[in-house]
Design a protein around this nucleic acid. Structure first.
Lengths: 223, 223
DNA sequence: GTCTTCAATGACTAGAATACGCATAGTTGT
DNA sequence: ACAACTATGCGTATTCTAGTCATTGAAGAC
């Protein structure tokens, strides 16, 4: 899951970035509003976090710019306690949620989970496909009730797959959202990690959940 | 837009109801949790507003009940200032947003507008000609409900044909869009692939969908 | 007008060349 | 020791080439 943070206060920005990365999100941090808008327009993020008090470009303009481009990425805005009317304007301009500074990092994480959930077709807090379940809040993965231990990257990959069950995910898409980088044809990390996941999730089960779409990418589904 | 408010404090409930009605929403007010869940399950509301502190049934149970029934109506929860962890649990249980009491009515209205905006953008996305259907998201192709397996190139060709149903597509056009290269007269790949497609799609059906326009190119249509 | 002929165009097939994905082993860095 | 990633070789599905066979439709013969 790829997240863009637009926040001019370096300290706050870095703090958020680190916290999100620990949850294995792919995070881009931008300290400039205009540049941030650019990034939001050209890259397919899963969530945008925007501070409404920015030096170069008011946060509201970013919202408007993004929504005008018909991009529906969930947006979480950050405001100071005092800016009640800003907040209302923000929500009307297309923001999906807000948080007042200062905030508890746990709450930020919970809200991001909520936003991610809303964007996908699934609504319950626990992602489930057949007998495979993933709980984003606890990062617990089970298949048939059996706990499965995953590394951070494996988890991030599986979460991305599960949030887009039934859709074909191309390598560039996976690379962008799980690895925070543009696709490099000369590596096969994705294949390797899909293989790791298969060993942990599909091996020994007759129903395979991870499918490869030759020439396109991968897909999670029940046949 | 129909809204259900589940709130036990009569005064607060009535206040919300009146405010919403002034905005010309259709509002049902319910002061009992269990009854509220019932109403949410049998009626198709556009938004649910749920107080997390209810006498008969904890608000969280309502959330779970609704989400278990696979109802995806946006839910806004109301909590007291102090119940931070309740709030987090609520979001994780499937709530889309929350508001802490006391709140400004303007803010409630803004949040409801945000929630309503969310749900509205749906697109079918499935291409269909006669009994032939192609779903770009899953790359699934069916004819008469029967699944058809296509290779990557076959799929690309069919998608191009289906996106331009009823129009004559010349070989140079196909070459450019499907093979993304300039046309080379000394190859017959296109013919070969049209043949592959015919075998998989038209063979055995009396209604042929792929037609050749002699001297020009190919065309997908129902006669 | 209709029948033949025949060149152009497209249909089909088989097999060669290629690219793709998988598995495994090795390397780096924490 | 472990996670993250790189490198390599192998089997196979896919893609493409090249050649033969079938169909079309227009021109000339009757």
């Amino acid at each position: 899951m790829r997240i863009l943070v637009i926040e001019d206060e370096t300290k706050v920005g870095c703090f958020i970035k680190r916290a999100l990365e620990e949850e294995s999100y792919a995070v881009d941090l931008c300290e400039d509003g205009a540049k941030g808008l650019q990034m939001a327009l050209i890259t397919d993020y899963d969530v945008l976090i925007v501070d409404l008090m920015l030096p170069s470009l008011p946060g509201l303009e970013i919202l408007k710019g993004v929504r005008q481009a018909r991009i529906q990425t969930p947006i979480l805005i950050l405001t100071a306690q005092s800016q009640v009317d800003q907040r209302v304007k923000g929500l009307d301009a297309g923001a999906d949620d807000y948080l007042t500074k200062p905030f508890a990092i746990d709450e930020l994480l919970a809200r991001i989970r909520a936003l991610l959930r809303r964007g996908s077709t699934e609504s319950p807090g626990v992602l489930q496909i057949d007998d495979l379940a993933l709980n984003p809040a606890t990062r617990e993965v089970t298949r048939g009730g059996q706990r499965i231990d995953l590394t951070s990257k494996e988890y991030a990959l599986l979460e991305y797959l599960m949030r887009h069950t039934g859709r074909v995910l191309t390598r560039p898409m996976i690379s962008e959202h799980v690895w925070n980088q543009d696709f490099d044809t000369f590596t096969n990390v994705i294949d390797v990690y899909v293989n790791y996941l298969r060993n942990k999730i599909d091996r020994g089960h007759s129903k395979k959940l991870i499918h490869t779409i030759r020439g396109s990418g991968y897909m999670l589904k029940v046949d």
